[in-house]
Design a protein around this nucleic acid. Structure first.
Length: 891
RNA sequence: GGGCGGCUAGCUCAGUUGGUUAGAGCACUUGCUUGACAUGCAAGAGGUCACUGGUUCGAGUCCAGUGUCGCCCACCA
């Protein structure tokens, strides 16, 4: 029978490969579209992070898809007007990185193809890969609205980008200026501070002698100033030497000049308090074009910046004899030459932090260039207050601080990228130097300043940072800037779900741009998930070979198992390890569900007659427990406590439904004396409670529940549902609790556990039916046991069961006696707090310990200080324990 | 240099406003081919909640500090 699941797995785990709204796919390829649920009063809209167009599904995607799909399915079942809009991001740098490699294999380069042909290649590449990620998401069960699939390079997005830029420009938040920006010599583009990843590295700190200039301008061979640097090659761009004004070593040199080796440039020696006397030699070479600090220094002191590197970080003609050398070759050459000249005073290892390109890992070069900037501070203010006053809530809350800190210290955003694949900045230059910005797709008709015709204008070649269009995602995908029906219906969105690692890149920018452009927060809740790590705790990487491929996992154990593993036992914002153990647990759970359903379906009487008779204890109990589970899971899903939801529904399904209820239902279903009507009632209860369970489970394990649902719907006379698909069935509302049934069942399960324990301890054969004598403490306990006596017999494997009145005449205390073979005693104490299952002696000791503890507690300050309700509860417990003890020892 | 987070059973992790005897999965021990399921059933064992001090009738939970691992931010050549 263990093969059942494997045989069925492909059916309920069928890959969703067809586009469509959403619905159910079968392995045959058949697709049943789901009809939209009624539009409710509530709206629920997910903002998702569009994955990179070139990517394929990894565990990070698996996590976000699972989280978002879970929320989506829940709200759709609630009847909310639900939208999860899918799409992909064009990812300028990443896409070019990939395409560059592909064309390199053909012996081509970006330049050899030229902009137009390169972009043609890109588009055809995109057409091949664009849908791949979407297909893979569907295999995970992503019930997104695939009819609204978007792409950040589609015309809708392009228009939103132009409009957004124009509006920012109109209010003066866009400017163009010279600045030192991060440059990746390999990607050959500017990158933002966020895309620069700092890494600690061991470098070398060299000390170089700059000879002082004599009065005739020639270098003084006897006198020099020693400067310390980690980047000797940049000396070609030096324009000054700086020392601290109070540094006695150099005070007399301030105002004199040093001579730059090789180039002979005269460098003023300037005093500035920014210089740390303790670092290096206390004298710093100043290279404004190649260091942010020096750039700032240069501005303050009116120095010119001399750029000595080209766009691939080779020395440019400014570097004289070193021209055309790569920056590291130049470094080596310069150090060697200095050493040969005797001007290399020393070198020592030096720990330092160097920025690398996030994409390709190349060391980033500060580069002086003219860039487009967006002023961020005015945009940041509203984004800060939106979170401060709770219009947007960030979960988990600690990330609100991170968000706030970043926005409070925000720097202007260099949005231009010197790439080709992306949205071209809609700015046109006029030969007279005027700039025209327009949102018109065809560009401006004429220069906005001097009316020169469009034919004389040239468009900016830079494109936008990808995150600029991503930042518009929540509304650009809905039709903004037009007030389209979708925009009116779905904006602002409800929950933005993404990883904490892109809180600055994306979340903060969506907030700023959303507030500026639409006047509303783009989403009310930010739900941040953690990273999925490898089993060992490290990052997953192909080179380490510790990657969990979601598609392989799905092939092997199904998407449901993967989804469950990703949700259960995790906390938002915390990293998690995806271990074999977790995946196995998920697989076991889906298997359990399938088998439970198989049992229920197979237990169906051939014909279902009109139910008759009162519900049994088990039937009343499962109804009440289902109500409790419904209430609990609903609350957890509303509060976005998704892991708690997963564990509590797992607990209900496995323990309550399978371990207790189904075992008892077998008794009711197989009771020889039962009428057809009673049997029908018993089965209908099993089937309907299963249907209720399936609804609660569906958001997290959609495939297996959908499959069971369709089988169940076919075999239930009331068809269980009016809707053919569980995914659009109604989320249940909790029915009434049955306190009496729950209380009776608590006593009964305790008694069953006690008898089982007794069997184990007395080494009774597991399969043997043993006689049992039960001596109920009182009439209520007796009634309880009578209600459940058949369950007791079947679940504890005891037969016959004798019910004896308390205080028997054989002088024994009130106990449940085991068989003659089993020498142990099993005590049955007061019904409410049954201590059954313990040996008499240990039960007595246990009671005495509890009584002692409570007496001590109640004799302390506790009785006076604690709230009266708490004190009364403890007093009641004490009284109860004392009664049990009296009962036990026969006092 | 700032800031944040983790430290709970052998392992991976839950633990929502302080309130019975701190939980789950896996692993472990014992027994089970019990008519849904051995991917299972039953019964068990296993924790000084990193450490120190404080607040409180009561602390895994709140406060202060320490240790340790990790992450984020930051212009020291």
């Amino acid at each position: 029978m263990g093969t059942q699941l494997r045989e069925l797995a492909p059916r309920y785990d069928a890959a969703a490969t067809e586009p469509g709204i959403y619905g159910r796919w079968e392995s045959s390829g058949a697709f049943t579209p789901a009809s939209d649920p009624p539009v409710g009063a509530e709206r629920f809209v997910i903002t998702m992070p569009p994955p990179n167009v070139t990517g394929s599904l990894h565990t990070g995607h698996a996590l976000f898809v699972t989280l978002e799909d879970l929320m989506t399915r829940y709200h759709r079942m609630r009847g909310d007007d639900t939208l999860w809009l899918p799409g992909v991001d064009h990812a300028s740098i990443a896409a070019q990185f990939v395409l560059d490699k592909i064309i390199a294999e053909e012996g081509e380069t970006r330049e050899s193809l030229g902009r137009d042909r390169y972009l043609e290649r890109m588009w055809s590449f995109m057409n091949e890969t664009r849908d791949v990620i979407g297909l893979q998401m569907r295999r995970l069960g992503a019930s997104a609205d695939w009819t609204r699939n978007r792409f950040t390079m589609d015309p809708m997005s392009a228009r939103a980008v132009r409009t957004a830029f124009k509006r920012l420009h109109e209010v003066g938040l866009v400017y163009r200026g010279e600045a030192l920006v991060n440059w990746c010599p390999r990607c050959r583009t500017t990158i933002s501070d966020l895309e620069k990843v700092p890494r600690e590295e061991m470098g070398i700190l060299w000390t170089i002698r700059y000879h002082l200039a004599r009065e005739d301008g020639s270098p003084d061979p006897e006198r020099w100033i020693p400067v310390a640097t980690t980047r000797p090659e940049t000396l070609l761009g030096d324009v000054a030497v700086a020392v601290h004004p109070e540094d006695a070593r150099y005070r007399d040199l301030v105002g004199r000049e040093a001579i730059l080796p090789f180039l002979g440039r005269h460098l003023p020696i300037i005093a500035d308090e920014i210089v740390e006397r303790e670092f290096g030699t206390g004298a710093v070479k100043i290279t404004p074009a190649h260091d942010p600090d020096d750039y700032e220094f240069g501005r303050r002191h009116g120095l010119t910046a001399i750029n000595v590197l080209d766009e691939e970080a080779r020395i440019n003609p400014e570097g004289g004899e070193f021209a055309s050398l790569d920056r590291y070759e130049a470094r080596r050459a310069i150090v060697e030459r200095l050493a040969a000249m005797g001007d290399l005073e020393g070198e020592r290892p030096h720990q330092m932090v160097i920025g690398h390109c996030d994409r390709c890992g190349t060391v980033v070069e500060p580069r002086l260039s003219v860039q487009w900037f967006i002023r961020m501070q005015p945009l940041a203010e509203p984004a800060l207050s939106a979170v401060r006053d709770g219009r947007t809530r960030i979960l988990p809350e600690q990330f609100a601080k991170v968000y706030t800190h970043w926005l409070e210290n925000i720097r202007d955003w260099a949005v231009g990228r010197q790439l080709w694949w992306g949205h071209r900045i809609p700015a046109w230059f006029c030969p007279d130097g005027h700039i025209t910005v327009t949102d018109a797709e065809a560009g401006p008709d004429a220069c906005a300043t001097c009316d020169r015709p469009a034919s004389e204008l040239a468009q900016e070649t830079d494109i936008f940072d990808t995150w600029f269009s991503s930042g518009l995602w929540p509304f650009s995908t809905l039709g903004w800037p037009d007030a389209t029906p979708d925009y009116v219906r779905f904006y602002p969105t409800s929950v933005m779900e993404t990883g904490y690692d892109i809180i600055f890149f994306w979340v903060a920018r969506m907030m700023m741009l959303g507030l500026f452009l639409t006047g509303e927060v783009p989403f009310h809740t930010v739900y941040l998930h953690g990273l999925v790590r490898a089993d060992g705790g490290g990052k997953m990487s192909k080179t380490k070979g510790n990657v969990v491929d979601p598609l392989e996992v799905i092939d092997e154990i199904g998407a449901d198992a993967l989804r469950f593993a990703l949700i259960a036992g995790t906390t938002p914002g915390a990293d998690q390890r995806l271990t074999k153990g977790k995946l196995d647990a998920g697989r076991n759970f889906t298997n359990k569900l399938w088998n439970a359903a198989r049992f229920v379906l197979s237990a169906r009487p051939d014909s279902i007659v009109e139910p008759e008779g009162a519900p049994t204890l088990a039937e009343r109990w499962i109804g009440s427990r289902l109500a409790a589970a419904t209430d609990r899971t609903t609350r957890q899903l509303d509060e976005l406590e998704l892991s708690a939801y997963a564990t509590s529904i797992h607990e209900f399904a496995w323990s309550d439904y399978c371990d207790w209820y189904l075992e008892m239902a077998k008794v009711d279903l197989r009771r020889p004396s039962a009428s057809d009507g009673e049997r029908a009632r018993a089965w209908l209860t099993a089937a309907r409670s299963l249907a209720g369970l399936l609804r609660l489970l569906h958001p997290i394990v959609p495939f297996v529940t959908e499959e069971i649902w369709s089988a169940l719907a076919a075999s239930l006379p009331d068809a269980a549902t009016q809707r053919p698909l569980l995914m659009t069935a109604a989320w249940p509302s909790p029915g009434p609790r049955d306190e009496e049934a729950e209380a009776e069942m608590a006593v009964l399960t305790e008694l069953i556990r006690g008898v089982r324990n007794l069997r184990t301890e007395s080494s009774a054969p597991a399969s043997a039916w043993l006689p049992l004598t039960v001596v109920p403490a009182d009439g209520a306990a007796r009634a309880t046991i009578e209600h459940g006596i058949d369950y007791l017999g079947a679940l504890a494997r005891v037969r016959p069961i004798e019910l004896r009145a308390p205080g028997g005449d054989d002088g024994r205390p009130d106990v449940i006696a085991s068989t003659a073979e089993a020498a142990a005693w099993l005590e049955q104490s007061a019904a409410e707090t049954a201590d059954a299952g313990l040996h008499r002696a240990s039960a007595e000791a246990h009671l005495r310990r509890g009584i002692e503890r409570l007496r001590t507690l109640l004799a302390s300050d506790f009785a006076e200080r604690a709230p009266s309700a708490v004190v009364e509860r403890e007093q009641a417990r004490l009284a109860d324990l004392e009664a049990q003890l009296r009962h036990l020892i026969g006092a």
